[in-house]
Design a protein around this nucleic acid. Sequence first.
DNA 1: AGAATGATCCTCT
DNA 2: GAGGATCATTCTC
Length: 200
Amino acid sequence: MGCHIIRQADGLKTGGIIVEAEAYIGEDDPACHASHGLTERNSIMYGPPGFLYVYFTYGNHFMINVVTGRKGFPAAVLLRGMEPIYGVDIMAKKRNVEKSEAIASGPGKLAAALSVTKQDYGTDLLGNSIYIIGPGRLKDSIMASPRIGIGARGSDKLWRFYLKDNPHVSRHPGAIRENIRSLNEAKRTAFSLYKIQTNL
DNA sequence: AGAATGATCCTCT
DNA sequence: GAGGATCATTCTC
């Protein structure tokens, strides 16, 4: 949260600040694409962290995920919202919108703004094509809520995170409901995440 | 403002 | 053959 994601292509730089993301953790997470085991589509999630898992859904949209689990443990973070910073005009034109809040306030929009497609599946984030740099000091509060669009399975977990009051967070129906906590209040959730990660 | 709908196609069973 | 980690547009209140 708060990191910058940068896309270098054709000598042009596009990207921005990650303001919304969701965690998908392991085969025991019923909402994770690895919940039914290894398949061709999710195979990158079973590799080492720091690579892109890109998939296509609803006949229209690509989703950008960062593989996070150690090799053999399938886990990834879905990028759902980005505050445009680099190449804003380029991204606005690509998305055919004027307001900056419309550029990447949702996972499909975000991928389209950065021109990320199936071709970027498996990209090494330590390369110079797509990379992520640290957040610096974060002054915004981080909020936690249920994940969006996954149905009932796994919706008990508060594994969606976003920056409070940031206008580039997705406005998906259902995004605003009860069960939203500040990260501090959701500390138990965050701590369980931490335990899962560190016990790998 | 919220609900419904069509677009559109890949992946897995 | 079914369903999906969505979006933009069009509808209904």
